[in-house]
């Protein structure tokens, strides 16, 4: 049962991450490949605050969100100078910078040695150390993020985001300050990603830079493309598929000598087939 709970926790954490990126890529059309950086900032904030300062986990989430929000506003402002592919490349570069900071700022992050011994959350005497209770916490956060995301996208603010995605110039003609909208959603997405980072750090109990490399950003992007851009249900479906699939493949009886390779080939093949037959994703409303 614990293994299933583990998979469910991963689904919850990745759902938060994917929903956060969907706000930026799916609803606003900003092809950002930097979500792992914000995820990492949240994770490191929690790891450092819990292990070095003994701060409460929930307080560390708030601090992590503030730090991530400030950083994302700064980088979002820089990235706002770019359009389309250049925006993607810029965000790509930002992920590499943050990764390098995690790796090299050894006095703060312990560099490649990582930070072990991160404690599980507790609140008013309630301990979230048991995995089942931690899962409930993750579900609460995931649902909160899901409904926040739905609220944002169904609001007039969300409609402006979609309009920016469809034709930024046109919406500017109507007097909308698109920079404000883009920066705001970029910061909101980043802050939500930092929540996922905090949960990840506390769950795995150890963080090191390899968990927040560029490949992680690409994985999150793959989730939302597979699930369906600009569709929150689709995104959660994408998470379920991409988290469960490699785990389910552990149960396929390949010969042990080639099992790992065969699982990877099968995983890749399934993704290719999905993209061939559903290029807009499983439930997508928008195609990049």
């Amino acid at each position: 049962m614990d293994y299933l709970i583990h998979i469910a926790i991963l689904i919850g954490i990745y759902s938060i991450l994917a929903l956060s990126l969907n706000l930026i890529v799916g609803y606003t059309g900003l092809l950002s490949i930097t979500q792992a950086a914000f995820y990492g900032i949240g994770a490191y904030a929690t790891a450092i605050l819990l292990t070095s300062f003994g701060m409460n986990f929930f307080l560390s989430i708030i601090v992590g969100m503030i730090i991530t929000g400030v950083v994302s506003l700064a980088i979002g402002y820089v990235l706002s100078k770019f359009d389309g592919d250049y925006f993607a490349l810029g965000s790509f570069g930002f992920n590499i910078i943050v990764y390098s900071i995690f790796l090299n700022w050894q006095s703060l992050t312990r560099g490649p040695l990582g930070i072990p011994g991160i404690s599980k959350p507790s609140l008013f005497g309630l301990d979230f150390g048991e995995n089942i209770i931690f899962l409930i916490l993750v579900i609460i956060f995931a649902l909160a993020v899901y409904f926040t995301s739905r609220f944002i996208t169904n609001s007039s603010f969300g409609r402006v985001l979609k309009a920016i995605r469809e034709d930024e110039k046109a919406i500017e003609v109507f007097g909308y300050n698109t920079l404000f909208f883009k920066l705001t959603i970029f910061a909101i997405g980043a802050m939500i990603a930092s929540i996922a980072g905090a949960l990840f750090a506390s769950y795995i109990t150890y963080v090191d830079p390899t968990s927040f490399a560029l490949s992680e950003s690409i994985f999150i992007l793959a989730i939302i493309i597979l699930g369906g851009l600009a569709n929150n249900k689709g995104v959660v479906l994408g998470v379920v598929c991409l988290v469960i699939l490699p785990e389910a493949l552990r149960f396929v009886g390949f010969p042990s000598d080639i099992a790992a390779q065969m699982r990877q080939v099968t995983y890749g093949l399934i993704l290719i087939l999905l993209m061939l037959y559903r290029p807009q994703g499983l439930l997508g409303e928008y195609k990049l």
């Binding site: 293994y3 795995i204 785990e247």
Partner: peptide, 14 residues
């Protein structure tokens, strides 16, 4: 990676 290790260890034990 961490996630892969945790998943593998949990699967083997559980």
């Amino acid at each position: 990676n961490d996630v892969g290790t945790v998943s593998a260890v949990k699967k083997l034990i559980e």
